[in-house]
Amino acid sequence: MNEVFVGLPKRMVKISVDGTDVQVPEGTTILEACRRLQIDTPTLCQLETLTPVNVCRVCVVEVEGSRVLVPACSRKVEPEMKVLTDSERVRHSRRLVLELLASSVDMALCAQQVHGWMARYGAKPERFGAAATVAQPVKIDNDLYVRDYSRCILCYKCVEACGVDAQNTFAIGVAGRGFDAHISTEFTVELPDSACVYCGNCIGVCPTGALMFKSEYDMRQAGTWDESQQKVTETVCPYCGVGCMLELHVQDNSIVKVTSPLDHSVTAGHLCVKGRFGFQFVQQRSRETKG
Protein backbone atom coordinates (compact mmCIF):
# COMPACT_ATOMS: atom_id res chain seq x y z
CA MET A 1 0.00 0.00 0.00
CA ASN A 2 1.54 3.30 -0.99
CA GLU A 3 1.58 6.38 1.13
CA VAL A 4 0.49 9.16 -1.10
CA PHE A 5 0.60 12.84 -0.50
CA VAL A 6 -2.99 14.00 -0.74
CA GLY A 7 -2.61 17.51 0.60
CA LEU A 8 -3.12 18.90 4.05
CA PRO A 9 -6.22 17.88 5.96
CA LYS A 10 -9.11 20.20 5.26
CA ARG A 11 -10.45 22.53 7.92
CA MET A 12 -14.18 22.58 8.43
CA VAL A 13 -16.05 25.81 7.80
CA LYS A 14 -19.36 26.68 9.38
CA ILE A 15 -21.89 28.39 7.16
CA SER A 16 -25.62 28.86 7.22
CA VAL A 17 -27.84 27.96 4.30
CA ASP A 18 -31.44 29.12 4.46
CA GLY A 19 -31.06 29.40 8.20
CA THR A 20 -29.61 25.92 8.69
CA ASP A 21 -26.07 25.75 10.03
CA VAL A 22 -23.79 23.32 8.30
CA GLN A 23 -20.12 22.38 8.54
CA VAL A 24 -18.37 21.79 5.24
CA PRO A 25 -14.69 21.37 4.34
CA GLU A 26 -12.79 24.48 3.39
CA GLY A 27 -12.73 24.91 -0.37
CA THR A 28 -16.23 23.52 -0.86
CA THR A 29 -18.41 25.48 -3.23
CA ILE A 30 -21.79 26.79 -2.16
CA LEU A 31 -23.30 24.40 -4.69
CA GLU A 32 -21.63 21.41 -3.06
CA ALA A 33 -22.82 22.61 0.33
CA CYS A 34 -26.37 22.92 -1.04
CA ARG A 35 -26.17 19.42 -2.44
CA ARG A 36 -25.10 18.06 0.91
CA LEU A 37 -28.20 19.65 2.36
CA GLN A 38 -30.27 18.14 -0.46
CA ILE A 39 -31.21 21.59 -1.72
CA ASP A 40 -31.94 21.14 -5.40
CA THR A 41 -30.00 23.89 -7.11
CA PRO A 42 -30.48 24.43 -10.83
CA THR A 43 -27.32 24.31 -12.94
CA LEU A 44 -26.72 24.39 -16.68
CA CYS A 45 -23.09 25.25 -17.30
CA GLN A 46 -21.70 23.34 -14.32
CA LEU A 47 -20.21 19.85 -14.47
CA GLU A 48 -18.01 18.17 -11.88
CA THR A 49 -15.30 17.34 -14.41
CA LEU A 50 -15.05 20.82 -15.91
CA THR A 51 -13.65 24.07 -14.56
CA PRO A 52 -16.55 26.26 -13.42
CA VAL A 53 -17.25 29.04 -15.91
CA ASN A 54 -20.24 30.39 -14.00
CA VAL A 55 -21.84 31.88 -17.10
CA CYS A 56 -25.42 30.63 -17.05
CA ARG A 57 -26.15 32.26 -13.69
CA VAL A 58 -29.07 29.95 -12.98
CA CYS A 59 -27.45 28.74 -9.76
CA VAL A 60 -27.15 32.21 -8.21
CA VAL A 61 -27.78 32.57 -4.50
CA GLU A 62 -27.93 35.49 -2.13
CA VAL A 63 -24.97 35.88 0.21
CA GLU A 64 -25.32 38.28 3.09
CA GLY A 65 -23.10 41.30 2.56
CA SER A 66 -22.79 40.84 -1.17
CA ARG A 67 -24.22 43.60 -3.35
CA VAL A 68 -25.10 41.19 -6.13
CA LEU A 69 -26.08 37.54 -6.24
CA VAL A 70 -23.24 35.04 -6.45
CA PRO A 71 -22.90 31.88 -8.51
CA ALA A 72 -23.14 28.86 -6.22
CA CYS A 73 -21.20 26.67 -8.65
CA SER A 74 -17.91 28.51 -8.28
CA ARG A 75 -18.10 30.56 -5.12
CA LYS A 76 -16.31 28.87 -2.28
CA VAL A 77 -17.68 28.94 1.22
CA GLU A 78 -16.21 31.32 3.78
CA PRO A 79 -16.56 31.11 7.55
CA GLU A 80 -19.88 32.43 8.81
CA MET A 81 -21.22 32.91 5.32
CA LYS A 82 -24.99 33.27 5.27
CA VAL A 83 -26.57 31.93 2.13
CA LEU A 84 -30.15 32.21 0.92
CA THR A 85 -31.13 29.89 -1.90
CA ASP A 86 -34.81 30.65 -2.19
CA SER A 87 -35.24 34.36 -1.51
CA GLU A 88 -37.35 36.52 -3.76
CA ARG A 89 -34.23 37.95 -5.41
CA VAL A 90 -32.85 34.48 -6.06
CA ARG A 91 -36.13 33.20 -7.44
CA HIS A 92 -36.43 36.27 -9.64
CA SER A 93 -33.00 35.90 -11.22
CA ARG A 94 -33.34 32.16 -11.69
CA ARG A 95 -36.70 32.65 -13.32
CA LEU A 96 -35.37 35.39 -15.59
CA VAL A 97 -32.32 33.37 -16.61
CA LEU A 98 -34.53 30.43 -17.58
CA GLU A 99 -36.97 32.72 -19.37
CA LEU A 100 -34.28 34.61 -21.24
CA LEU A 101 -32.70 31.36 -22.37
CA ALA A 102 -35.92 29.64 -23.33
CA SER A 103 -37.06 32.71 -25.24
CA SER A 104 -34.00 32.56 -27.44
CA VAL A 105 -33.08 28.87 -27.61
CA ASP A 106 -34.94 25.63 -28.29
CA MET A 107 -34.66 23.84 -24.96
CA ALA A 108 -37.02 20.99 -25.76
CA LEU A 109 -34.33 18.31 -25.52
CA CYS A 110 -32.97 19.44 -22.16
CA ALA A 111 -33.24 16.98 -19.30
CA GLN A 112 -36.60 16.70 -17.55
CA GLN A 113 -34.96 18.32 -14.55
CA VAL A 114 -34.55 21.57 -16.49
CA HIS A 115 -38.23 21.63 -17.33
CA GLY A 116 -38.91 21.03 -13.65
CA TRP A 117 -36.94 24.15 -12.73
CA MET A 118 -38.87 26.15 -15.33
CA ALA A 119 -42.08 25.10 -13.64
CA ARG A 120 -40.74 25.70 -10.16
CA TYR A 121 -39.70 29.27 -10.91
CA GLY A 122 -42.73 30.02 -13.05
CA ALA A 123 -40.73 30.78 -16.18
CA LYS A 124 -42.90 32.09 -19.00
CA PRO A 125 -40.55 32.69 -21.93
CA GLU A 126 -43.45 33.66 -24.19
CA ARG A 127 -43.91 36.96 -22.34
CA PHE A 128 -41.04 38.47 -24.33
CA GLY A 129 -43.21 38.40 -27.45
CA ALA A 130 -41.63 38.22 -30.87
CA ALA A 131 -38.09 38.05 -29.59
CA ALA A 132 -34.77 37.47 -31.32
CA THR A 133 -33.64 33.84 -31.20
CA VAL A 134 -30.59 31.86 -32.22
CA ALA A 135 -32.64 29.68 -34.60
CA GLN A 136 -30.59 28.46 -37.55
CA PRO A 137 -30.29 25.40 -39.80
CA VAL A 138 -28.85 22.19 -38.40
CA LYS A 139 -25.21 21.56 -39.33
CA ILE A 140 -24.56 18.07 -40.69
CA ASP A 141 -21.13 17.96 -42.29
CA ASN A 142 -19.83 14.53 -41.32
CA ASP A 143 -21.00 11.02 -40.49
CA LEU A 144 -20.52 11.16 -36.74
CA TYR A 145 -21.77 14.47 -35.34
CA VAL A 146 -24.75 16.72 -35.79
CA ARG A 147 -24.66 20.29 -34.52
CA ASP A 148 -27.94 22.08 -33.99
CA TYR A 149 -27.01 25.46 -32.60
CA SER A 150 -30.66 26.48 -32.37
CA ARG A 151 -30.45 24.49 -29.16
CA CYS A 152 -27.22 26.04 -27.90
CA ILE A 153 -27.40 27.93 -24.61
CA LEU A 154 -23.69 28.84 -24.78
CA CYS A 155 -22.79 27.02 -21.59
CA TYR A 156 -19.15 26.67 -22.74
CA LYS A 157 -19.05 22.99 -21.72
CA CYS A 158 -18.21 21.72 -25.20
CA VAL A 159 -15.44 24.29 -25.50
CA GLU A 160 -13.99 23.23 -22.18
CA ALA A 161 -14.17 19.52 -23.02
CA CYS A 162 -12.57 20.14 -26.44
CA GLY A 163 -10.05 22.41 -24.78
CA VAL A 164 -8.14 22.62 -21.53
CA ASP A 165 -10.35 20.43 -19.38
CA ALA A 166 -9.91 17.26 -21.40
CA GLN A 167 -9.13 16.90 -25.04
CA ASN A 168 -6.93 19.96 -25.65
CA THR A 169 -7.74 19.88 -29.34
CA PHE A 170 -9.43 23.28 -29.46
CA ALA A 171 -11.39 22.57 -32.62
CA ILE A 172 -14.12 24.86 -31.35
CA GLY A 173 -14.20 28.04 -29.39
CA VAL A 174 -16.57 30.82 -28.52
CA ALA A 175 -16.57 33.37 -31.32
CA GLY A 176 -18.31 36.68 -31.81
CA ARG A 177 -19.67 38.83 -29.04
CA GLY A 178 -22.88 39.54 -27.18
CA PHE A 179 -26.02 37.89 -28.50
CA ASP A 180 -24.00 36.95 -31.60
CA ALA A 181 -21.52 34.98 -29.52
CA HIS A 182 -21.59 31.40 -30.70
CA ILE A 183 -19.64 28.18 -30.71
CA SER A 184 -17.53 27.99 -33.82
CA THR A 185 -14.65 26.35 -35.58
CA GLU A 186 -12.01 28.70 -36.96
CA PHE A 187 -13.65 30.87 -39.60
CA THR A 188 -16.75 28.64 -39.21
CA VAL A 189 -15.24 25.95 -41.44
CA GLU A 190 -17.01 22.60 -41.51
CA LEU A 191 -15.85 20.07 -38.95
CA PRO A 192 -13.81 17.96 -41.37
CA ASP A 193 -11.76 21.09 -42.18
CA SER A 194 -11.30 21.89 -38.52
CA ALA A 195 -8.98 20.40 -35.94
CA CYS A 196 -11.80 18.12 -34.73
CA VAL A 197 -10.71 14.56 -33.92
CA TYR A 198 -14.24 13.28 -33.27
CA CYS A 199 -13.68 12.21 -29.70
CA GLY A 200 -17.30 13.14 -29.01
CA ASN A 201 -16.39 14.65 -25.67
CA CYS A 202 -18.27 17.82 -26.59
CA ILE A 203 -21.39 15.78 -27.19
CA GLY A 204 -20.79 13.96 -23.94
CA VAL A 205 -21.12 17.19 -21.96
CA CYS A 206 -23.80 19.02 -24.00
CA PRO A 207 -26.87 19.58 -21.81
CA THR A 208 -29.32 20.64 -24.49
CA GLY A 209 -29.04 18.23 -27.39
CA ALA A 210 -27.39 20.91 -29.53
CA LEU A 211 -24.57 18.45 -30.10
CA MET A 212 -25.69 14.94 -30.91
CA PHE A 213 -24.29 11.74 -32.30
CA LYS A 214 -25.45 11.32 -35.86
CA SER A 215 -26.76 7.86 -35.03
CA GLU A 216 -29.03 9.29 -32.35
CA TYR A 217 -30.09 12.14 -34.59
CA ASP A 218 -31.03 9.76 -37.38
CA MET A 219 -33.00 7.54 -35.03
CA ARG A 220 -34.81 10.55 -33.62
CA GLN A 221 -35.64 11.70 -37.12
CA ALA A 222 -36.91 8.23 -37.95
CA GLY A 223 -38.89 8.12 -34.73
CA THR A 224 -37.10 5.01 -33.49
CA TRP A 225 -35.12 6.57 -30.63
CA ASP A 226 -36.63 5.25 -27.41
CA GLU A 227 -34.70 5.80 -24.21
CA SER A 228 -37.21 3.79 -22.19
CA GLN A 229 -36.15 0.74 -24.19
CA GLN A 230 -32.45 1.34 -23.69
CA LYS A 231 -30.26 -0.51 -21.24
CA VAL A 232 -26.89 0.86 -20.21
CA THR A 233 -24.04 -1.56 -19.51
CA GLU A 234 -20.57 -0.63 -18.31
CA THR A 235 -17.62 -2.35 -19.91
CA VAL A 236 -14.09 -1.61 -21.11
CA CYS A 237 -13.11 -0.26 -24.50
CA PRO A 238 -11.78 -2.95 -26.87
CA TYR A 239 -8.96 -0.87 -28.32
CA CYS A 240 -5.72 0.36 -26.76
CA GLY A 241 -4.54 -0.60 -23.29
CA VAL A 242 -5.61 2.51 -21.38
CA GLY A 243 -8.75 0.77 -20.16
CA CYS A 244 -11.44 3.38 -20.74
CA MET A 245 -14.78 2.61 -19.16
CA LEU A 246 -17.58 2.58 -21.68
CA GLU A 247 -21.29 2.82 -21.07
CA LEU A 248 -22.97 0.98 -23.90
CA HIS A 249 -26.50 2.20 -24.51
CA VAL A 250 -28.29 -0.75 -26.10
CA GLN A 251 -31.69 -0.71 -27.73
CA ASP A 252 -33.02 -3.85 -29.49
CA ASN A 253 -29.70 -5.67 -29.02
CA SER A 254 -27.92 -2.90 -30.82
CA ILE A 255 -25.51 -0.29 -29.44
CA VAL A 256 -27.03 3.11 -30.15
CA LYS A 257 -24.72 5.34 -28.15
CA VAL A 258 -21.51 5.14 -26.16
CA THR A 259 -20.73 7.31 -23.15
CA SER A 260 -18.33 7.05 -20.25
CA PRO A 261 -18.93 7.50 -16.52
CA LEU A 262 -17.97 10.95 -15.23
CA ASP A 263 -16.73 9.56 -11.95
CA HIS A 264 -14.25 7.01 -13.27
CA SER A 265 -10.60 7.77 -12.61
CA VAL A 266 -9.41 6.63 -16.04
CA THR A 267 -11.74 8.61 -18.30
CA ALA A 268 -13.59 11.23 -16.24
CA GLY A 269 -16.29 10.76 -18.86
CA HIS A 270 -14.03 11.33 -21.85
CA LEU A 271 -13.22 8.96 -24.71
CA CYS A 272 -11.47 8.98 -28.07
CA VAL A 273 -12.97 8.44 -31.50
CA LYS A 274 -12.40 4.69 -31.38
CA GLY A 275 -14.02 4.17 -28.01
CA ARG A 276 -16.88 6.45 -28.89
CA PHE A 277 -17.65 5.29 -32.41
CA GLY A 278 -15.58 2.17 -33.05
CA PHE A 279 -18.22 -0.24 -31.75
CA GLN A 280 -20.01 -0.99 -34.99
CA PHE A 281 -17.82 -3.90 -36.01
CA VAL A 282 -19.27 -6.06 -33.29
CA GLN A 283 -22.70 -5.66 -34.85
CA GLN A 284 -21.64 -6.24 -38.40
CA ARG A 285 -20.59 -9.86 -38.06
CA SER A 286 -23.71 -11.64 -39.22
CA ARG A 287 -23.12 -10.20 -42.64
CA GLU A 288 -19.43 -10.98 -42.71
CA THR A 289 -19.32 -14.43 -41.20
CA LYS A 290 -19.17 -17.06 -43.85
CA GLY A 291 -20.57 -20.55 -43.18
Binding site: E234, T235, G243, L246, L248, V250, N253, I255, V282, S286
Partner: peptide, 26 residues
Amino acid sequence: GWAESEGTVTNSERRVQRVRRALQPP
Protein backbone atom coordinates in the same frame (compact mmCIF):
# COMPACT_ATOMS: atom_id res chain seq x y z
CA GLY B 1 -14.89 -10.22 -25.20
CA TRP B 2 -15.78 -6.64 -24.39
CA ALA B 3 -19.47 -6.47 -25.22
CA GLU B 4 -20.84 -10.00 -25.39
CA SER B 5 -19.07 -11.71 -22.48
CA GLU B 6 -18.42 -11.32 -18.79
CA GLY B 7 -14.89 -11.14 -17.50
CA THR B 8 -12.00 -8.86 -16.65
CA VAL B 9 -9.19 -7.08 -18.45
CA THR B 10 -6.14 -5.26 -17.08
CA ASN B 11 -5.07 -1.83 -18.28
CA SER B 12 -1.71 -0.09 -18.48
CA GLU B 13 -1.84 1.08 -14.87
CA ARG B 14 -2.39 -2.53 -13.73
CA ARG B 15 -6.06 -1.89 -13.10
CA VAL B 16 -8.18 -5.01 -13.35
CA GLN B 17 -11.56 -3.96 -14.69
CA ARG B 18 -14.81 -5.72 -15.43
CA VAL B 19 -16.13 -6.23 -18.93
CA ARG B 20 -19.77 -7.09 -19.22
CA ARG B 21 -22.24 -8.55 -21.64
CA ALA B 22 -24.33 -5.81 -23.21
CA LEU B 23 -25.30 -7.63 -26.40
CA GLN B 24 -26.40 -11.10 -27.35
CA PRO B 25 -23.75 -12.54 -29.63
CA PRO B 26 -24.78 -13.47 -33.17
